[in-house]
Simulated assay, not measured.
Amino acid sequence: MEIIRFADRKPQPWRNGGGVTRQIAGHPDAASLQDGGWDWRVSIAEVTKAGDFSSFPGMERVLTVVEGELLLLTVDGAEHPLEKYRAFRFPGGAATSCALPTGDVRNLNVITRAGSFKGFTSIVEISKKRAHPLFAGQLGILLQGQATASDGRREPEALGRYDAVVGSDSASPEVLGRGFLAVVSIDQVTG
């Protein structure tokens, strides 16, 4: 079972210098590649001021506010109010800017190479009675609350806020607790 500890992720400046992000996972390992040389990336960005978002031509983005109340996103001139835990998909190369009408936010970003991969984000409420399994191609990221992860082969491990559990089809890890979990799925596009 693989757990990616958020506390171990180092902040990196946005491509345009407008903020910072912490990469959780990528393929190939996005941290070791030049900016944009990867096929997909999952990260958490801190948005502390209004302004432009970095452009990712040829990519598709799914953005979810995971901390804070509201992000006012403008994509190619159209305004989209994004509330907490509501995923929003848009083209990575679109002219994108934001306003922060209620204060700072943190965003969960899933960026995939268009035509090669498709990213999805679902927010689920976890339970102490019924474990939530994570399969290959999925990441479970604890957004709020207290939880443990276990693959049935070793003792459950406590998760901190924004820690990620990597899914697997053999001995699928399960998350048990109370709170909210982002389940990020990355699917390869075929055909």
Score class of each variant (00 low, 15 high):
residue 34 Q to K: 11
residue 116 S to N: 04
residue 65 V to G: 10
residue 37 G to I: 01
residue 72 L to C: 07
residue 154 R to E: 09
residue 48 T to D: 14
residue 139 L to D: 10
residue 83 E to S: 08
residue 104 D to R: 07
residue 61 R to E: 13
residue 135 F to Q: 05
residue 141 I to V: 15
residue 108 L to A: 02
residue 112 T to R: 00
residue 67 E to G: 06
residue 124 V to A: 12
residue 56 F to M: 07
residue 127 S to R: 11
residue 123 I to N: 09
residue 110 V to I: 09
residue 45 A to V: 03
residue 14 W to D: 08
residue 143 L to V: 05
residue 130 R to V: 15
residue 43 S to G: 04
residue 85 Y to F: 15
residue 62 V to K: 11
residue 105 V to E: 10
residue 104 D to P: 08
residue 105 V to D: 13
residue 145 G to N: 10
residue 64 T to V: 13
residue 27 H to N: 11
residue 82 L to T: 04
residue 53 F to T: 12
residue 123 I to E: 13
residue 97 S to W: 07
residue 48 T to N: 15
residue 50 A to S: 14
residue 10 K to W: 02
residue 155 E to Q: 03
residue 146 Q to P: 01
residue 116 S to Q: 13
residue 145 G to C: 12
residue 102 T to R: 15
residue 34 Q to F: 05
residue 17 G to P: 08
residue 54 S to M: 10
residue 85 Y to I: 02
residue 142 L to T: 08
residue 77 G to H: 07
residue 138 Q to Y: 03
residue 53 F to C: 12
residue 131 A to M: 00
residue 132 H to P: 00
residue 34 Q to I: 03
residue 104 D to F: 00
residue 134 L to C: 04
residue 67 E to C: 03
residue 129 K to L: 14
residue 144 Q to V: 06
residue 65 V to W: 04
residue 132 H to Y: 13
residue 141 I to D: 13
residue 127 S to P: 00
residue 31 A to T: 08
residue 31 A to K: 13
residue 83 E to V: 01
residue 25 A to Y: 01
residue 49 K to Q: 15
residue 61 R to L: 09
residue 64 T to K: 04
residue 142 L to S: 12
residue 80 H to R: 07
residue 40 W to Q: 02
residue 121 T to M: 01
residue 91 P to C: 15
residue 40 W to P: 01
residue 55 S to H: 00
residue 14 W to M: 08
residue 118 K to F: 07
residue 49 K to P: 02
residue 65 V to C: 07
residue 13 P to A: 00
residue 24 I to H: 13
residue 109 N to A: 05
residue 144 Q to Y: 05
residue 77 G to S: 11
